[in-house]
Design a protein around this nucleic acid. Structure first.
Length: 882
RNA sequence: GCCGGGGUGGCGGAACUGGUAGACGCAGUGGCCUUAGGAGCCACCGUCCUCGUGACGUGCAGGUUCGAGUCCUGUCCCCGGUACCA
């Protein structure tokens, strides 16, 4: 019971801080290693056990690489702008700066209590004016290079709350807070031209050491598709003699002969002008209905197609036949040209639409049966005039050639990716460093006036007048003058939270720089980030936005690498465990005594859980492991009713489930080293796994055992015992070498769980034949150091070293000890194990074969037959076939 | 639906390129130590039986192979993402 993590851990945390052990400086004589965590938003709830999982992994790598002679940059900071602090301000009047400051202090305390080796001198906070200054400086650069522009874009305006809401604050077309109606309103907004980088954002993924699924998600999000734009002339009878053309985008120009009708998005600008008088009422009703329908509604009946004929027809340019022009909400206004040519024979959606409205279906690609289903795959062109007989790829290019020569269209590339909506109607964000002139001109404010800071507010409630951001109310801030003394207005929008997180990894290189966002020297030395660890929820947006900015910086000569993050690892989620049952008191009525039901008596419905038996509404209840009773079969049952089985559920930690684990509690009880080790031990980093309150016991026992390798006696009698001099017995030397080799390989591959199990085996077996020899003891302490740094430092100092082990050289295994003189081989007959033999490591196949055939069981199994074949797998086994 | 990940003991998980399935840990069982043990140490711990250097066993059904958790075909289930992208 002598191992006392709390004393050891605070001692070493103070030591590291006092000695600035982890301060990183540029040192050209050493290779660098930049290991980065996705910095957190410091929420009011504090750290949960999920955060430290990634942080522990990066810390182990940072400490390991230091011992391997790398100059390691390992910083931490705060992504501190964000909605929760502003919402809290609206509710309580507390300035977001105060809330943010408190939350940062709490996060920092918690993170530091885990003993991570961050260089705290580089701590940054995206809300700090010295940081905001450079975020605004970057916006100036983007604007100067034509990558920032203003456009009218719809926002979620909630008249009741008098504020603009983020998509995530809108649920089912109503505000998350209060359930008030939300309408889409156009508003002038800042946009960033990320689409200009679409191709490079796809291409450069190839060079990155990222998980394939993440790369794929990015490629799909950008959604490059090659095809053609084709112009269809609207028949003059329906366009009142005017020359009206509808341009469509298609990825299958080869199917143009099979276009039997066209569809416009209800929002398409030509809808009103081409609609004929007798169809006008129906079209207008449909347009209005689509506009009213929420995203959710549209999604709900994605299977069934709706639409209305506009009364107009257009001419299919290939054969000149008239085809009807419809409107339907399965065509999206925002993708391609907002209009399609419908080829029902070869597109599933068009096929369904044609079936619904009895439109003609023509086969133009052989290989399917278009009367049964759309044939969407490739095939030979048919019924297609000059394309007949061509395979799909050839038909595509021939059609594009024809369209271009006839002036009817051209080959083109379309992306799903849209430009990035970069303004928010919020207070707690970076103000835009621009002024608006009366004549509508926009001017950047001079660099010397940065940072442009937020005005102080007394009241953070939205103005409620018009759909204006809170800053619009602050007349004395909004109304200002330019250098020539003309009256101008500041921009009332602020930047999104992404702005700060798009470039923070560059500021870490040189956080105190007043002259530039970062110095060329620091950038050249430290970039790119060698290892970036964070949650998969940022797979697309954060990583895509930062890559975009980084490419802009690259083009401007501000950085030397095309990509910011060389290797990316997504950590899994730490899940919570709880035990579920139901009761028939869905309204939490305290006066009734509810009946409890097991999970298998309940089914989920759209309205919530109900009893299978009679459909009564019930409500789920959760119990924690410590509160449940285990019956004799070790099944969890309700503590007050042993006949009620409980369902074990493992899911995301959340307050409502009561399954949240607070790191402070874990550290108090078992120490930071146990917490670190446990998070690494429960499974591979990339995988999600449940936190188990018992499981950490095993880790704690292991650390105690490690401590006891160096101590004897109990309580007051306890004292340090120096290890025996020398290298110990052959077995001890071999075990030590094997541990070094195994742990090293595991750490290189970030397989922390198996590295820990190897250390456990060492601690269990090293004293099997005598006291721990000094060489093994020191090696073990060094191997333990990246993962359990506090205990390792303590033991290292007890072993008589005056300095921190943070920069000690990583142990090297004595290779000669890793090769055994004899090996034990499994002997199989027809693939079934029949015995084992011990042979010299360098025995030849003939000798091995003879030894294997001599095994009594093998002979018995062979039953006198001669073996047909003998397979010898060196170092593994012998398989006798016959 | 589509895309991605995954199904191995009571539980978390090991098993590198096909080569002894279940390392390590939790929980459990037995023993030792002890005034006591919620400490520590040792042993056992997939299923079945005829208790053996026995049979079966990695979601399910097939296949390839001397040999399959690992490769192939089909199929079921779970988790995550996404939502008619022409």
């Amino acid at each position: 019971m002598a191992y006392d993590p709390s004393a050891i851990e605070s001692k070493w945390q103070e030591f590291w801080q006092e000695h600035e052990t982890f301060r990183a400086e540029i040192d050209a004589s050493k290779p660098k290693y930049y290991v980065l965590d996705m910095f957190p938003y410091p929420s009011g709830d504090g750290l949960h056990v999920g955060h430290p999982e990634g942080y522990t992994a990066t810390d182990i790598m940072a400490r390991y690489k230091r011992m391997r002679g790398f100059n390691v940059l390992h910083p931490m900071g705060w992504d501190a702008f964000g909605l929760p602090a502003e919402q809290y301000a609206i509710k309580t009047g507390t300035h977001p700066r105060i809330t943010t400051g408190n939350n940062i202090a709490n996060f920092k305390r918690q993170i530091q209590s885990l003993g991570f080796s961050y260089d705290w001198s580089r701590e940054i906070d995206t809300t700090d004016p010295n940081y905001v200054k450079w975020t605004q400086w970057i916006f100036r650069k983007l604007h100067e290079h034509g990558l920032a522009y203003e456009a009218e874009v719809a926002v979620n305006w909630c008249p009741e709350l008098g504020t603009v809401l983020a998509n995530e604050e809108v649920i089912d077309g109503k505000s998350e807070v209060g359930g008030h109606p939300v309408v889409r309103m156009p508003m002038k907004q800042w946009m960033l031209k990320i689409t200009a980088y679409a191709d490079r954002l796809i291409e450069d993924l190839d060079e990155l050491d990222w998980p394939e699924p993440i790369k794929k998600m990015q490629r799909d999000w950008i959604g490059r598709s090659e095809g053609a734009n084709v112009r269809f002339g609207v028949d003059s009878s329906s366009s009142r003699g005017e020359d009206v053309e509808i341009e469509v985008f298609t990825t299958r120009p080869d199917t143009l002969f099979g276009a039997t009708y066209m569809v416009l998005a209800p929002e398409h600008e030509l809808v009103a002008s081409i609609t004929t008088d007798d169809q006008r009422a129906a079209v207008e009703e449909y347009v209005e209905r689509s506009a009213r329908r929420s995203e959710r509604d549209r999604m709900a009946d994605a299977g069934s197609k709706t639409g209305v004929w506009t009364g107009a027809t257009a001419s299919n340019p290939t054969h000149g036949e008239s085809i009807p022009v419809w409107i339907a909400d399965y065509v999206l206004a925002g993708y391609g040209t907002g209009a399609i040519m419908a080829v029902p024979g070869h597109d599933e959606r068009d096929w369904e639409f044609a079936k619904t409205f009895d439109l003609p279906i023509v086969e133009v690609v052989a290989g399917g049966d278009v009367t049964e289903a759309a044939h969407t795959g490739p095939g030979t062109a048919t019924n297609s005039g000059f394309l007949d007989g061509l395979e799909t790829p050839a038909a595509k290019s021939k059609m594009i050639e024809w369209l271009e020569s006839e002036g009817l269209g051209q080959g083109t590339v379309t992306y799903k990716l849209r430009d990035w909506l970069f303004s928010r109607q919020r207070y707690w964000g970076e103000p835009f460093p621009v002024v608006h002139h009366e004549d509508g001109r926009v001017e950047l404010i001079p660099e010397s006036e940065l940072p442009l800071t937020l005005p102080e507010l007394e009241d953070f409630k939205p103005s409620g007048e018009g759909y204006e951001p809170p800053l619009a109310r602050v007349k004395e801030w909004i109304e200002t003058t330019d250098a020539e003394g003309r009256a101008v207005l500041r921009d009332a929008n602020t930047m999104p939270q992404w702005a700060g997180s798009c470039w923070y990894f560059l500021r870490f290189l040189d956080p105190m720089n007043d002259e530039a966002p970062w110095s060329e020297e620091a950038e050249k030395y430290w970039m790119p980030v060698d290892l970036y660890v964070g949650g998969a929820e940022h797979a697309v947006l954060h990583l895509l936005y930062s890559r975009f900015w980084h490419k802009v910086f690259y083009d401007l000569g501000l950085v030397s690498t095309k990509e910011p993050f060389q290797k990316l690892v997504n950590q899994g989620m730490i899940l919570g465990e709880s035990f579920r049952f139901y009761d028939d008191n869905p309204n939490d009525d305290a006066s009734t005594s509810p009946t409890r039901f097991p999970s298998d008596a309940v089914k989920e419905t759209a309205e919530g859980p109900v009893l299978k038996e009679d459909g009564r509404a019930v409500k789920a209840r959760w119990l924690q492991l410590k509160d449940v009773t285990l019956d004799e079969d070790r099944n969890a049952v309700h503590p007050e009713d042993a006949s009620l089985p409980l369902e074990r559920v493992v899911e995301k930690m959340s307050k409502s489930r009561g399954n949240v684990i607070n790191p402070d509690d874990v550290i108090r009880e078992h120490g930071a080293d146990s917490m670190r080790l446990y998070e690494m031990f429960i499974g591979p980093l990339e995988k999600s796994a449940p936190w188990s309150t018992e499981g950490i016991q095993g880790i704690y026992r292991f650390l105690q055992r490690a401590y006891r390798l160096f101590h004897e006696g109990e309580d007051e009698e306890e004292r340090f015992v120096a290890p025996a001099d020398g290298a110990g017995t052959d077995d001890q030397r071999r075990l030590t070498a094997e541990t070094v080799s195994g742990v090293t390989e595991d750490l290189e591959n970030m397989r922390f769980n198996t590295a820990i199990s190897k250390l456990m085996i060492f601690a269990r077996d090293i004293t099997k034949d005598g006291a721990v020899p000094r060489e093994s003891a020191e090696t073990f302490v060094l191997l333990l150091a990246p993962m359990a740094p506090h205990l390792a430092e303590e033991l290292w100092s007890l072993l008589g070293h005056g300095e921190s082990l943070a920069y000690e050289a990583w142990p090297v295994a004595d290779e000669s000890l890793l090769v055994a003189d004899t090996v034990s081989l499994v002997v199989q007959h027809n693939g079934k194990k029949r015995g084992e033999i011990e042979v010299a490591a360098d025995a030849d196949d003939a000798a091995i074969e003879a030894a294997a055939l001599a095994v009594e069981n093998v002979q018995k199994s062979l039953g006198g037959r001669d073996p047909k074949k003998v397979i010898v797998v060196p170092g593994r086994l012998v398989n006798i076939v016959g």
